[in-house]
Design a protein around this nucleic acid. Structure first.
Lengths: 139, 139
DNA sequence: GACAAATAATTGCCGAGGCAGTAATCTTAT
DNA sequence: ATAAGATTACTGCCTCGGCAATTATTTGTC
């Protein structure tokens, strides 16, 4: 089977696994990913999140709406630059994050069962090269 | 970066490349994939296509609607089993397929630029193992 | 300082996929 | 022979992501 189909299926399996395991927490995979980035301090604003996750800004607004509704994230307008809205992990979010991280790690590890460290690195390197080829190449 | 993000981005790049190159033909990646399966004789019915492409039956009906509207595919009710509808590549579809195949192959090859045969096989093997892990494992 | 360009967040819109439900038809079990 | 279950194609419904436009604000240029 072709690389394209295999990638689509592997990604779908990963996503389906994540969504299923996160359902009890009322979150989907993308909501978890955004919350995790905030918790790790990788991003502080919606635009940050979009850049790091290669995600649409409109969709990100809606994801943050859900996280805010659930009380996991707070929005806080910046004083110096009134365009930006800082995102803070709320107390409830901080309380949930360890459990969510455990779920996320387990799903990934399940899919990588039987892989040794060198194989995981090879896989990541191949994927990175494909991304780079797509970024610089014609298509 | 994690395997999950890399897979998502690599797949997105592949899909975006395909969609961009297929746009002049008025097709998207999934429509092309379905047409290709029919042209290759891998599938003869909508249910066949769904099984091979791991795709939802409802969405497949709509994809086939588009392909039929464009005159690339014909639907033909089976006489023996009146539930099934055979799908035939119409003359226009047969005429377009070589060009479409060329586009599809080129996009994939662009993304795999710099890969030797062994590396492609490794990548496919890794993805296959992940799919199998997801199928049998908990998540 | 004024004006153009860039940036941040948001909203509406559209296309696409997954899910559940339906109708028609076939298969299997009793 | 008949009832139960499976299968095929299809339809609505819901959610989600990407795109384009909007508003507010800041930065850069002349």
């Amino acid at each position: 089977m072709s690389v394209g189909y295999l990638m689509a299926r592997a990604r779908a399996s990963l996503l389906a696994g994540l969504d299923a395991e996160l359902a009890p927490f009322g979150l989907n995979a993308m909501q978890y990913a955004a919350l995790k980035h905030l918790g790790d301090g990788i991003a502080r604003t919606a635009a940050d999140l979009c850049r790091h996750m290669y995600y649409d800004t409109g969709s990100m607004t809606r994801i943050l709406d859900r996280l805010e509704e659930k009380g996991l994230v707070r929005r806080e307008r910046c004083r110096d630059d009134r365009r930006v809205v800082f995102l803070r992990v709320a107390a409830a979010g901080r309380a949930q994050l360890p459990r969510l991280r455990a779920v996320g790690s387990r799903v990934l590890e399940d899919h990588l069962a039987g892989f040794n460290a060198a194989e995981v690195e090879s896989l990541k390197s191949y994927l990175g090269r494909m991304i780079e080829n797509g970024r610089t190449g014609k298509s």
